[in-house]
Simulated assay, not measured.
Amino acid sequence: MHTVWKGAISFGLVHVPVKMYTATEDKDIHFRSLHKDCGMPISYAKTCRHCDKEIELDEIVKGFEYEKDRFVIMKEEELEGIKDEAAKTIKILDFVDLHDIDPLYFQKTYYLSPDLAGAGAYSLLLEAIKQTGKIGIAKISIRSKSSLAAIRAVDNCICMETMFFPDEIRSLSQVPNLPTETVVNEKELGMAKALVEQLSEKFEPNKYTDEYRLALTALIEQKIAGESVDIMKTPAAAGRSNVVDLMAALQASLDATKPLPETSPPIRKRKSTSKKKDHVS
């Protein structure tokens, strides 16, 4: 794994040197843009529409557009000057319960490993988090981006989830067509809850796969091998019906997900092994 950040976790006066690694990876299949006539990749040059010429990297500066086509230029030394002095520290501010955090806040996951002689302090924090069941809420700066973060234990590793600040999350009032109040039919609600119960399982992440990526990989391999490719529509999901009535749809869903009754083998009639006694009058 490639180290993306190096610093320390601090809680109280305890200092835990750590290295950070990205916990997830991009599995998307990326395409290059090619010239249709010759099949070669197209390059994208950085050009200035005012000077009508290609711009070199050392000629580029950062600017903020405060009005249409009006910019204020920011120098690198100015940006460096306003950075937090503790930019290399994950400072835990509070400890909270995980269920108090809405998943809406979570952004990206990282693994943290002990660095240098920090194994003892690392193990101490790891075990304290495990045994209290708490989550640390911290501040961190990665690549000039300041974030909130949640520090938690995953098995024998301290894991960090970057989080959005509250003002980065849009208000629900901006979402169109939300109901002002929920009015439901009690019978339909009962059937919906029964369907939820029937579909409830223990979360097993390994049973979920990206079918599109697998199909796209197979298609690419076919084309590399020079095989002919038939273009066809994906078949409709099995069991899908055109039921419009909500009650009928709920009932059909319940019937489709109902577990099959266990069938037991037929009971064979045992033959009597005792001899029939003679009747004495």
Rank of each mutant, 00 (worst) to 15 (best):
I73Y: 04
I101P: 07
I151F: 00
L116G: 11
Y111D: 10
F95M: 15
D97Y: 02
A119D: 13
G120S: 14
S141Q: 14
S144A: 15
A128F: 07
R143F: 06
I137A: 09
F95I: 04
I73P: 01
Y111W: 08
K83H: 09
A87M: 10
T89N: 00
H99P: 10
A119L: 12
P103E: 03
Y111S: 09
F106A: 09
D100P: 03
G136C: 07
K88G: 12
K75F: 07
E67Q: 12
E127H: 12
E80P: 09
E67F: 02
L93G: 14
G120P: 06
A87D: 13
P103T: 03
I82A: 12
V96W: 01
I129D: 05
Y105W: 06
P103G: 07
Y105Q: 08
A153I: 04
R70P: 00
I92F: 01
S146D: 15
P103F: 04
L125P: 06
E76L: 07
G120F: 07
A150L: 09
L98G: 08
S147T: 09
A119S: 14
D115G: 07
A117Y: 07
F106K: 05
L125W: 03
S144H: 14
E80V: 10
I135Y: 00
E77T: 13
S141P: 05
K139H: 14
K68R: 12
I101W: 01
L126R: 01
V96M: 10
S123Q: 14
S147I: 00
K75P: 12
K68W: 00
G133N: 06
I140D: 02
T132D: 06
F106P: 07
K130C: 08
A153G: 09
G136F: 02
D100L: 06
Q107M: 10
A138D: 06
L112N: 01
S113H: 12
S147Y: 08
G136P: 08
A128H: 03
F71I: 11
E85P: 12
K130I: 11
S113P: 00
G133R: 03
G133T: 09
L98H: 09
L116R: 11
K91N: 12
I90V: 14
K145N: 14
L116A: 13
K91Q: 12
